[in-house]
């Protein structure tokens, strides 16, 4: 939403449509590291998905499928919480 709306263009009654934040890309908040998924190690436990503050672990049909890098802020929670041993199915790596 690059152009600012004038007041007559606003949604009625100070409402706002759901999900509009998808257009706001917080991916550029990452400080040089991003999570990288290693599907060969992944056991699809979904712990990374439930632990992500930014709904940025993507899933399909109950399986982990990767990351939404447009919104992932690179906090590293998913990598820390991933339970696989000895190697983690998510590692934080330089972008």
């Amino acid at each position: 939403m690059s152009k600012l709306m004038n007041w007559k263009e606003l949604p009625p009654c100070d409402t706002l449509a759901a999900k509009t934040a998808e257009a706001f890309e917080t991916g550029d908040w990452r400080m040089g590291e991003k999570p990288v998924w290693h599907p060969e190690i992944c056991i699809h436990c979904m712990i990374c998905w439930i632990s992500c503050p930014d709904s940025s672990v993507t899933v399909k049909d109950g399986k982990m499928t990767g990351f939404d890098y447009k919104h992932c802020k690179g906090c590293g929670i998913c990598a820390k919480e991933c339970p696989t041993k000895p190697n983690k199915a998510i590692t934080m790596e330089k972008e």
Binding site: K19, E22, F24, C45, P53, D54, S55, G62, C72, C75
Partner: peptide, 24 residues
């Protein structure tokens, strides 16, 4: 978690909570 993951997530990405926040 598999069952939960097919339900509707109440939040999208793109909110401005700090990286690593706990409330979302």
């Amino acid at each position: 978690l598999k069952e939960l993951s097919v339900r509707k997530d109440p939040l999208t990405g793109g909110h401005r909570a700090c990286a690593g926040c706990g409330f979302p």
